[in-house]
């Protein structure tokens, strides 16, 4: 264990809290154990069983993110809230960039959009870097690079993304032309990722970069863009080649949300994964949530960035490899 890194970790987490506290954000302590976890088709919660004293029992899951609880709190009238705590995801690679238990920061603002999330992220990152003294890896001048997903496709692989939206066959042809394999089971999103992960993400390089305006199919909890509903108000933040954050101008239409949840649940079924009922309390709260924007930010990867650690295992006291392997 690198004890110095663990001290740095502590400094950074304390400063993150201070940044939010000093700006009037309230820290929420949302539950880690829930009955109905997020059902993103490609995330797998850990399940357990809770027993009451009389022996009655029911299944519970560890949260993959605090998102549903945070949105319900917003619907109860909260504004400017954050949550900073461990989240849990099963089935992820222990490859130096993931741990099944990781520290996730989420924050939300009312009457806000992607611009506000990008500005918050930039300011918070720079402030924490400055206060902690770990400034050498964070560019301090000018705004962080901002690109739409379409701009990134043009810039790195020379492909015009817009005509490919909603056209699986055209996307499949583009994949083949770029040397990728295509199978019948590949969805449009899968084909998008094959090109994105091969030709775009690795070329974003070290520079902190916001990628925004995602195809609407890839943004299950985001509002469609007002000027072009084929895209949605989603932003991802990359630095040192790693995805650090994922944010949305949040969808508050319960009818559309229900439709997307049902599609996601159908996809889980198709993938042979466990399914569970839709969270009706969450859906019922959405109309009261109003116009909010929120972002989930990976604190472990942020610590890696600031300290120059190349593996998540260097900044965790007891990484998965160590605690679960003999």
């Amino acid at each position: 264990m690198n004890v110095e890194r663990i001290r740095q970790r502590s400094d950074i987490v304390r400063l993150i809290r201070r940044w939010f506290d000093e700006r009037g954000f309230l820290e929420m302590h949302t539950p880690r154990l829930v009955g109905l976890p997020g059902q993103e088709p490609h995330l797998d919660p850990f399940w357990s069983v809770v027993h009451e004293a009389d022996g009655a029992s029911r299944p519970v899951a560890f949260v993959t993110s605090p998102e549903y609880a945070m949105k319900r709190l917003l619907a109860e009238g909260m504004d400017r809230i954050y949550d900073l705590g461990p989240c849990f995801r099963d089935g992820e690679p222990w490859d130096g960039t993931h741990d099944p238990e990781f520290l996730l920061l989420e924050w939300y603002r009312r009457d806000a959009g992607l611009e506000d999330l990008m500005r918050d992220t930039e300011e918070m990152v720079r402030w924490v870097a400055t206060e902690s003294g770990y400034t050498s890896l964070v560019p301090m001048l000018g705004p962080f690079r901002r690109m739409t997903v379409s701009e990134a496709w043009n810039a790195y692989v020379g492909i015009d993304l817009d005509p490919l939206l909603d056209d699986r066959e055209a996307m499949a042809d583009t994949c083949r032309a770029n040397g990728q394999t295509v199978t019948d089971a590949d969805t449009w999103d899968d084909l998008f990722f094959k090109i994105f992960l091969t030709g775009i993400e690795p070329r974003l390089g070290e520079e902190p970069t916001f990628l925004y305006r995602y195809p609407v199919s890839m943004a299950a909890l985001a509002r469609p863009c007002a000027d072009d509903p084929r895209f949605a108000e989603r932003v991802e933040f990359y630095a040192r080649g790693l995805e650090l954050a994922n944010g949305f101008a949040e969808l508050s239409d319960p009818v559309e949300q229900r439709k997307r949840f049902e599609e996601e649940r159908a996809l889980r079924q198709k993938l042979g994964k466990k399914t569970w009922p839709l969270d009706e309390r969450f859906l019922g709260a959405l109309p009261k949530m109003g116009n909010v924007a929120g972002i989930a930010f990976g604190v472990d990867r942020f610590i890696m960035w600031l300290t120059g650690a190349t593996s998540i295992n260097d900044i965790l006291p007891f990484p998965a490899r160590e605690r679960f392997e003999d």
Partner: peptide
Amino acid sequence: FQHINPGKGAAFVR
């Protein structure tokens, strides 16, 4: 090689 889980997407191996 590198395993990638975009979270909002399927798992891939680059």
